[in-house]
């Protein structure tokens, strides 16, 4: 019973927080551990209905991006030799977004447990910090300086590296 039902389930429907429906190939969906878990649970129960997974925390425009990523990575899931092309794609993928989108995407990747996307986002954030001053980092990430003068002085001391 379980085996027959699993073969019949090739697609799932994902609902975004603003009530848009996305039909997703199972292979693509399983890039997200959260979706995969849901599918596995349903299959164990032996449901033959179409599975609907509501994601209350992801808006449709962010979900589109996550699914775009999953689709690309599902294509490469079987052959790990194509890494170079995929890396290039990953690199280009994140470049397109502003920092607000990047934030939502990172949160969505975390929420949907898409580990490789989460890592990619975090690395991208880390890289974008690399060539910026503290002031500039606060600017692009829209963060307020909430340190007291005493803390500021501590930070300055901590970052003065002594030479022999």
């Amino acid at each position: 019973m379980a085996s027959s039902s699993s073969s019949s389930l090739s697609r799932v429907v994902v609902k975004s927080s603003d009530n848009n429906l996305f039909v997703v190939n199972k292979k693509v969906a399983s890039q997200s551990q959260l979706l995969k878990q849901c599918i596995d649970n349903m299959e164990e129960k032996g449901t033959n209905d179409v599975i609907l997974i509501p994601l209350s925390n992801v808006t449709s425009n962010i979900l589109t991006l996550v699914l775009e990523y999953c689709e690309k990575h599902a294509d490469f899931a079987d052959d790990d030799n194509n890494n170079q092309e995929l890396k290039q794609w990953d690199h280009e993928f994140l470049k397109k977004f502003d920092y607000a989108t990047l934030n939502s995407l990172t949160m969505a990747a975390d929420y949907m447990v898409t580990k490789s996307l989460l890592n990619l986002c975090c690395q991208f954030i880390a890289d974008s910090i690399k060539d910026l001053t503290v002031q500039q980092i606060r600017q692009i990430f829209d963060i307020k300086n909430d340190f007291t003068p005493q803390e500021e002085a501590d930070i300055k001391n901590e970052n003065a590296w002594a030479f022999r």
């Binding site: 910090i129 503290v134 980092i137 606060r138 963060i143 340190f147 930070i155």
Partner: peptide
């Protein structure tokens, strides 16, 4: 160092 100097 700069990462840790951004905010609390």
């Amino acid at each position: 160092g700069r990462f840790r100097a951004v905010c609390k």
